[in-house]
Design a protein around this nucleic acid. Structure first.
Lengths: 201, 201
DNA sequence: CGGAATCCATGACAGATGTCATGGCGTGGT
DNA sequence: ACCACGCCATGACATCTGTCATGGATTCCG
């Protein structure tokens, strides 16, 4: 019996996954949580063999939850599952100690397959995404550029960013300019979009 | 037996929904499609009692697919299902002829409930979302303002928008300014975000 | 019809934005 | 030690953006 922990903020999706995995004779869902900061406690309580974590969750990010979980219960294999096949997520998931990465576009059999393979100690990675990840490479943005850009996500003015980051307005503009150049964009909004799509934030 | 058609672009989610619904003794999934423009053909072929459509789909929008389906097979009840509980979506789904609206945050039982109720001729609407929808009201944006704002989504410059919409730059700026005012934003990017969150695009 | 209201369109102007040149600081190689 | 390199920080300047005042077109009443 493979004991599985599910973490996904969308209750409907989580329930459906549980139903699907429950159909398999060798898989048992032993815990379900809806937020990243509930993962560790639930895992300690139920000692699952495999944890299936969504990236998008309230409270604690799925990737951060993976770090916690991997540190506290190394025997528990972590699979990261996400809606968006952004190349950067894959690299960050692997860095976080995950052994598998599944996008929600994949056919359903992939998920049960992934659970079984992870349990067997294998790595599970979508080959298309892996290729794309290597092609795009790591983020070309520097730390500050990423900071500034992710603060600019919700559309604030330069003055707002400067106040939030304790920088001069000129500095903020410079970082934005650099980010715009590196992303091949012509506007800060476009740069935000590109960076988001590549998982660089 | 309630015959159900599933439309969702995320194969994993779609398969999981099918597994969950398949567990119910009175429900049968007779068709699964991954794009909006496949809905009509599949429905004609399988004559489902209930169609469960995701809003986000490639090809044809789930809401547009609902319009088509409702016009061609009025006997097929349509339930719209979406990740984002944006108030505007609810109104648009109802206008598109849907009888139900379910967000993916809802508990799993809601979905099977919704299918049964829709089949029984009842309307199914998340009460929280309905209240919010009434509170926010209909979009305050005029047609051109919506056009301009949705073109501005990907971060192009004013000149780009003007060229795309065959307008003067000044006109574009004016529409943007109006949209910014009506959304309570201070930047065009912020306005885009607010309008998206309310389903006004 | 007259008037009010609404939307669309446009140009002028103040203010915000993006680009550039400059300099300080830390790291790593020679 | 010295230099080269990359990142961070800043101010000046041209350009773009958002606001405002204005006018034309359409619709909806009394």
């Amino acid at each position: 019996m493979i004991r599985v922990l599910l973490a996904d903020d969308q209750a409907l999706v989580r329930g459906a996954f549980a139903a699907m995995l429950g159909l398999e004779p060798d898989i048992e869902v032993v815990a379900q949580v809806s937020a990243g900061d509930e993962v560790l406690a639930a895992a300690r309580r139920t000692t699952p063999d495999v944890a299936l974590l969504d990236v998008q969750m309230p409270g604690l990010d799925g990737l951060s939850a993976a770090v916690q979980l991997h540190a506290a219960l190394p025997s528990c294999r972590v699979i990261v599952c996400t809606t968006f096949g952004r190349p950067g997520y894959l690299a960050r998931a692997m860095a976080a100690g995950a052994v598998g990465f599944v996008v929600k576009d994949a056919p359903p059999e992939h998920l049960v397959d992934a659970v079984r393979r992870a349990h067997a100690g294998l790595r599970v990675v979508d080959p298309v995404l892996a290729a794309e990840s290597l092609a795009h490479g790591r983020s070309p943005l520097t730390d500050r550029e990423r900071d500034v850009l992710s603060c600019a996500r919700d559309g604030g003015t330069v003055a707002d960013l400067a106040k939030a980051l304790h920088l001069s307005e000129g500095t903020v503009r410079n970082h934005l300019s650099a980010a715009i150049g590196k992303t091949g964009a012509r506007t800060r909004a476009e740069a935000v979009r590109v960076a988001e799509d590549n998982g660089w934030l």
